[in-house]
Write a protein that binds this DNA or RNA. Sequence first.
DNA 1: CATATGAATTAGAATAGTTCTAAACTTAGA
DNA 2: TCTAAGTTTAGAACTATTCTAATTCATATG
Lengths: 134, 134
Amino acid sequence: MKTMSTMLKANDLAVTAQRAAVMEFLHGNTDHPSVDTIYKRVKKRFPYISRATVYNTVKTLTRAGLLQEVLVQQDKTRVDSNVSRHHHFKCLRCGRIEDVPYDILTAKHVGEHAKSYHVEEVRVVMEGRCKQCR
Amino acid sequence: MKTMSTMLKANDLAVTAQRAAVMEFLHGNTDHPSVDTIYKRVKKRFPYISRATVYNTVKTLTRAGLLQEVLVQQDKTRVDSNVSRHHHFKCLRCGRIEDVPYDILTAKHVGEHAKSYHVEEVRVVMEGRCKQCR
DNA sequence: CATATGAATTAGAATAGTTCTAAACTTAGA
DNA sequence: TCTAAGTTTAGAACTATTCTAATTCATATG
């Protein structure tokens, strides 16, 4: 199994206790925590950790492809350690964010998913280059 | 044709000059302006308009189904006067946000769209009730 | 294994977007 | 016209995020 420090080294990133702690907290955590949640949680082990460090770490690890920042609400960034291609489902009542398989994109799968999850809204955002910017 | 005041009345909303001005600015505007953009633009005609009024108006009109708040980036809300079911395309270079037909959701259409637009990323967010909250 | 250098961390200030507040004003209905 | 409820206003407050400058740390090299 890959240790946090192995993964950091593999990406040419300095191995620091804070980075490893953030990664460890996120590892296997499937509930897409906000930066503040990560900060509060890691703070228990590193009382002097700064919010800026968590922001920096998330940005750095995201650039290295080890994390993903998920856009599910406009106010707060949510962090996902599942970097495979997938989408998201957000519960309008409890706020839970779940991963959803990528092939949901076919109408057939959307229909099935909608049936089992009570999907009320599907939001698709595409990014790329528009005609003028190609 | 529907006037702004007609639409407001039809939704049981008081007709105020500020509301009508915000609606008029948005009407036929397809570039998904931010609240700040709306504020600055409407300010030209109503120098004393407050940011809070624009926020309130956007929220009120959204609740009435006359506007839509679009989630394309985490920092700023973008407003869309097209309230029909559709998705969005964001250009990574110029930032332009374009409307995209709803039936893009079938894999076939995604493929076609991707071809003509250089789509680099497709983000889907579903909202509804999760298994525990049904 | 000591050390120099660049990178990372820290606390707190600064910034941006948004919401809140309380007073003044406007709308719509009686 | 008058009144009550709803709306607008300026600015304070709040939240998420970025910036800053000083300090500390990781690691490559000798």
